[in-house]
Amino acid sequence: MTRPGPDAQQTGMQLTDAQPADRQQKDTQLTDTPLIDMRHIGKTFVQADMETRVLHDISLRVWPGDFLALTGSSGSGKSTLLYIMGLLDQASSGSYHLQGQDVSTLDDAAASAFRNAVTGFVFQSFFLIPYASALDNVLLPGVYSQVPDRELRARAEELLVRVGLGDRMHHKPNQLSGGQQQRVALARALLQEPALLLADEPTGQLDTATSRSILELFQKINEGGTTIIMVTHSPETAACARKRIVMRDGRIHPDIPDEVEQPEQPDRANGTDRTDAAEDQALG
């Protein structure tokens, strides 16, 4: 475990600027456009005359190359925010720029092209196609791209080797362990070489040792330049990220809990968050 770095500090300003602290050193590679630029994002679900406000006035910037952990209690809107970031859902209000482009009101074709080329998704319950081999699962995003078959196959095989499944390419998901399945899902998310990798509790169903090896993979991927936003309940997992954002009742919590840096130490600044996290772990 290499994270967190000593300078993974965060400032509690109104516009949460998730700019990596070591940005200055990488300035040569980075542009001045944030990868994600969300302003005053709100989300309201309407169900049978009942309105549920899930996100309130979320403003957030994420710079290329960052690795963000999104934590918070259950129901605080983490998944909802992640889905909006990945264009799987649309915000009810506010503006969203992805790679400098306004994506708040894209039509289906354009949004799916973005999902195919710019974002990669990893889910808590893997979501592998049960009847397809590991290799075919990894190849799935390629179906909707214009990349030639041969190149897709080469990439998929290489990715499977990279996640340590070079000898399991033709296994079906039910012949793989949970950790192996999540590796396949991770390789699948990377097939289209996305700029942004979104993960919703990727280690939620895995034991500690397996989680750790998956998180190491995430860190390697991040070191390769891919921006990662990861939803998690676990402080240890969050500690692997460079930066941590805490959500509460659909808002980004302004306080920065210290346990980001030292998860094993008791929380000083923010008792509530810690209690929530402990509760969630007990539940989940």
Binding site: A109, S112, I129, Y144
Partner: peptide, 16 residues
């Protein structure tokens, strides 16, 4: 529905 949602998440358009 999971298969459909997944494919959409991976970049399948409604048309696809």
């Amino acid at each position: 529905s999971v298969e459909i949602g997944l494919k959409k998440a991976l970049g399948a358009s409604s048309q696809a």
